[in-house]
């Protein structure tokens, strides 16, 4: 019984999502290069590498792996 209700709720939230958002022709700002989520990807990957080797946690935006000894 609990599962069905959760599933129902999940569908509703997804349904809810459909009220957020804009029409396809109102997306001019999202066509901008600097609005892409991977914009400035080199800066982001350089930052990730620095913080991976200098702090105790990593990941979040992308995978947590660092691929280096970074001692």
């Amino acid at each position: 019984m609990k599962l069905k209700i959760c599933l129902g709720l999940l569908m509703l939230t997804l349904g809810g999502c459909s009220s957020l958002g804009v029409e396809p022709w109102q997306k001019q700002h999202f066509a901008r290069e600097d609005m892409a989520l991977n914009h400035e990807k080199l800066d982001l990957s350089l930052d990730d590498h620095i913080y991976f080797s200098k702090e105790g946690s990593s990941g979040g935006r992308a995978f947590a792996g660092g691929g280096c000894g970074c001692n």
Partner: peptide
Amino acid sequence: QTLDLILGLTQIINANWLMQFNYGLS
């Protein structure tokens, strides 16, 4: 050995804003 998993949801909020939510397991 490392296994990484990310579940992501990106949602356009309005004409100017979008949001992204990621859950990462490593």
